[in-house]
Design a binder for these strands. Sequence first.
DNA 1: AAATATTTTTAGGTTTGTCTAAATTTATTT
DNA 2: AAATAAATTTAGACAAACCTAAAAATATTT
Lengths: 221, 221
Amino acid sequence: MQCKYSPAEENYLKTIFHLQQAEDGVSTGNLSAALHTRPASVTDMLKKLKEKKLVTYTPYKKFRLTQKGKNIALHIIRRHRLWEYFLAETLHFSWDEVHDLAEELEHVSSDKLIDKLDAFLSFPRFDPHGDPIPDQHGNLKERPQIMLADVGPDTPVHVVAVASRDLQLLELLQHVGIGIGTTIEVKKKFDFDGTMEVKVNHKKIIQLSDHSVKSIFVKID
Amino acid sequence: MQCKYSPAEENYLKTIFHLQQAEDGVSTGNLSAALHTRPASVTDMLKKLKEKKLVTYTPYKKFRLTQKGKNIALHIIRRHRLWEYFLAETLHFSWDEVHDLAEELEHVSSDKLIDKLDAFLSFPRFDPHGDPIPDQHGNLKERPQIMLADVGPDTPVHVVAVASRDLQLLELLQHVGIGIGTTIEVKKKFDFDGTMEVKVNHKKIIQLSDHSVKSIFVKID
DNA sequence: AAATATTTTTAGGTTTGTCTAAATTTATTT
DNA sequence: AAATAAATTTAGACAAACCTAAAAATATTT
């Protein structure tokens, strides 16, 4: 169960996994955009991944990961998120620096290394973005969270995830003092444009755009 | 001062550095053997490294690193040894597992990551093999150690380094309970073949071959 | 110093992962 | 439904890093 895939293959698998979470099939164009790689190159790789039975692919059609591909993707995601946790928690990197470094570290593939790292970190269940970390077998807890946009007024909730890893968003949230675990109460919702006024950590009052409140996932306390 | 070199280039630089420590010039054959790469491939890479002014190279002659090349090599060695220290000290990997993993991790090149790792580890000065870890500027402390082979009888010394990373040697040493920091007293030296009988950690008496005692470096207590 | 052996380089080829440009297929308009 | 537009695939190239086999240079032996 410990085959070796190239960093390029691993990136394809991981990215297909993320894309097919949202839509129910991934297109060459989607993937090409997500990877910053030309469609022709994506087609090439798709043929290779199909050969290795990691992806279901028929030319011109949408495609998905096979069970095998999904499994490998989950292992890569596990590596990525454990490194993110390590970087943030142990080395005190800030929230928004963590992703790019983990992108490199995730390709160092030694199960033993990852399991020892997991143990050292005391088996964290969520990464610094609030995303769940798959276990050794690739099992992933679903997150029972709702969008901040859907929260009613004066209900205390805490942040458990952020949908996008967009650097601008992370920067904005860091700036206004929102992170994983932050407590939020919605104070007002402006139907005009979806802007919300919220209280952060029982103190500061701030305004968040429609786009932001749809990217922040919370749990009711 | 933060250019990007490929893992292959980094491995060449690092290996040339190590080889030119021993001999005063490195040959294509030497390097080819050390890298497990054919001489023709080495010639190719040497031309590329010369182009980038990392190595002094004239066809058919021995070569060395330029100052620039040496500097980069030291930075790679810093990364390698810090990761080794982390793996052994923080994740509790055993002595002989550490090298191969560090070989992969060392190519994740972010100065910030390495400096934060350094700080987290409290700025260790020696890796688990006893080799010195270069600082941020690539400065390396020389090790003031002597071979166990040269130690007189009943002089307590402690192990500070092992010359080779040969897996067999590391395995042997681990087996007989010798590691960095282990206290040793020489009890007998057999001139016949250089074998030594030594007391390990004030307890166990063991025999070490000529080859072993020339590969173990110690400091007198 | 000539002959042989060794080392190193050159020449040409392979694989991986990318690219551009052209051809083809699917989707959208009119 | 035919025409146009958009997405996808094929074809042919390229760079990096390796390879093998042959040629050239250096070393060693006789």
